[in-house]
């Protein structure tokens, strides 16, 4: 097995007395699409924020392409972020910037590419996510939820990253738009050859975009396997989650 692009070993994170991550062990290989399932409050977003360096774990090691980035906020972390894309659940588009400025933000601010060239690349990337050049000069507030997700996807892929994180990519979208977003994710990720880590509780999305699926429960990975085996996992927790049953070992968070 080759060196994973991202590897998390025994990652633990607490907020006061609440232990959100109790020792997460997971890795993803280059070009692999890993989906992490988990209910509300299972620690999915916290795990993702630790991987991105937006939070620092109390214990454990996070390696990106073989380099320890666990506590680094300097050049090593910046080098990692230059090779990583992120699609936020809410889109997290900058309200004060136009669509093309959002998409090309990294090119202008981090890579110091001239605005004219950056705009051309932004429009080209918008086309890849089925958005015309007419939206380039609009502001995010003027777009629908589905269009905002596509702009967020364009922003995540414009610098051709090696690893892309997707945080609930289809949440809040109608089934048809959600499926279109799934198709775009598959198409663009295959074109880039990037590895992806997606966190979701949308089973249809998980089945469609995943090579492998892992289940996070109470801050630990309790199952991992190929996407095709999700219905025969032999794990009661996974089985209950996949079939969306209220009865079972997982207590509904209400």
């Amino acid at each position: 097995m080759t060196q994973p692009i991202l590897k998390m070993t025994d990652v633990q994170k607490s907020f006061g007395p609440k232990h959100v991550l109790k020792g997460v062990n997971i890795d993803v290989q280059r070009g692999q699409s890993l989906v992490i399932l988990g209910g509300s409050g299972s620690g999915k977003s916290v795990m993702l924020k630790n991987a991105l360096g937006l939070m620092t774990p109390e214990q454990g090691v996070i390696e990106f392409d073989g380099v320890d980035v666990t506590r680094d906020q300097g050049k090593t972390r910046e080098a990692m972020r230059a090779r990583v894309g992120m699609l936020f659940q809410s889109g997290a588009l900058f309200d004060s910037l136009t669509v093309w400025e959002n998409v090309s933000f990294r090119l202008i601010q981090a890579e110091r590419i001239k605005r004219g060239e950056a705009k051309e690349r932004a429009i080209e990337t918008l086309r890849k996510v089925r958005l015309g050049s007419d939206v380039a000069d609009l502001y995010p507030a003027e777009l629908s939820g589905g269009m905002q997700k596509r702009v967020g996807l364009a922003r995540a892929i414009i610098s051709k990253p090696d690893l892309i994180f997707f945080d609930e990519p289809t949440t809040g979208l109608d089934p048809i738009t959600a499926d279109a977003i799934n198709d775009l994710i598959i198409e663009q990720v295959k074109a880039l050859g990037a590895a992806t880590i997606s966190i979701t509780h949308d089973m249809s999305s998980a089945r469609k975009i995943a090579d492998e699926i892992a289940m996070l429960y109470h801050g630990e990975i309790i199952w991992r396997g190929p996407s095709s085996q999700i219905d025969a996992s032999g794990n009661d927790y996974v089985d209950q989650f996949v079939h969306g049953r209220a009865d079972g070992p997982i207590q509904p968070s209400i």
Binding site: K49, L52, G53, L54, E78, R81, A82, V84, M86, F88, Q89, S90, A92, L93, F94, D95, F105, R106, Q109, A110, R155
Partner: peptide, 10 residues
């Protein structure tokens, strides 16, 4: 999450 997005965009 726009401030988190800023950080991820270096």
């Amino acid at each position: 999450e726009q401030i988190d997005a800023l950080k991820t965009l270096s």
